[in-house]
Amino acid sequence: MFGINGAELGILLLVAVVVVGPERLPRYAEQLGGWVRTLRGLLRTAKERVTEELGEDVADVDWASLDPRRYDPRRIVREALLDEPKTVVPAVEATGRRYTTGAARRAAEAAAVAAPPAPDAPAPYDDEAT
């Protein structure tokens, strides 16, 4: 905590007791206890509000796995390589052609958008544009 070991903390507490004096020490200890109780109440209220806002699903989150100190690129790559490959579900277009990847589907959609409309087709109209 703040780079202070146990012996240094003890010395600081002893100096604080000597500086504050025995007549004011109980009042300061009471104030410190009040601050700690207030801080605990604030933290409890914050946790309740987070749970209320995000729902009960937030309780299932493993916060330790999101700790940046546990970030190890070698472990991430190892886990990614050992995972089972995801199966690609082919999509069928209305014309009956099958696309095995999302990239092929997007390329076909882009080609369809880039194609000029038929000469006798009405002009495209976007009712949400204005």
Rank of each mutant, 00 (worst) to 15 (best):
P124G: 01
I4F: 04
D62V: 10
G6V: 02
L42V: 09
G55S: 02
V88L: 15
K86V: 15
D72R: 14
D126L: 03
R98M: 12
G21T: 01
R37F: 04
P26V: 03
R24L: 06
E53S: 08
E93F: 13
K86N: 08
A129W: 02
E52D: 07
G34I: 04
P116W: 02
A29K: 12
L14E: 09
R37C: 06
G33W: 06
P119S: 08
G41I: 00
I76Q: 12
D83Y: 01
Y99F: 15
Y99K: 09
G3K: 01
T87R: 13
G55N: 02
E30T: 13
R98I: 14
T101K: 07
V58D: 03
A107P: 00
K86T: 15
V58Q: 03
A115C: 04
P119G: 02
A107K: 10
V20T: 14
M1V: 07
A114L: 06
A121T: 12
S65A: 15
V89M: 11
R75Q: 11
D126T: 03
V113P: 00
A80R: 11
T45G: 07
A121K: 06
T51C: 10
D127A: 14
A118H: 07
E79I: 07
A7V: 05
L81G: 09
V113D: 06
L12A: 10
E84K: 12
E53V: 12
L25D: 05
E79M: 11
V15E: 09
V20P: 00
A112D: 10
A59S: 14
Y125T: 15
T38P: 00
D60L: 14
P26S: 07
R49Y: 04
P124V: 01
Y71P: 00
A121I: 07
A103Y: 04
V15L: 10
V92C: 09
G3Y: 00
L66V: 03
R74G: 13
E109P: 00
G33L: 12
P26W: 02
A7D: 08
P116H: 08
R37D: 11
Y28S: 06
V77M: 11
V61A: 07
G55Y: 01
L54Y: 10
G102S: 15
T51K: 11
P90K: 12
P117V: 00
I4A: 03
D83G: 08
D72F: 07
D83I: 02
P73N: 05
D57E: 15
A91F: 04
P119K: 04
G33S: 14
E128Q: 10
D57K: 13
I4C: 02
P22K: 12
T95W: 02
E30V: 06
R24G: 00
G21H: 01
M1Y: 03
K47T: 11
L25I: 09
A115L: 07
Y125H: 14
D126E: 07
D72M: 10
V61Y: 04
L82M: 10
P90N: 10
V58E: 06
A118K: 04
L9I: 03
A46S: 09
W35C: 11
E93A: 14
T100V: 08
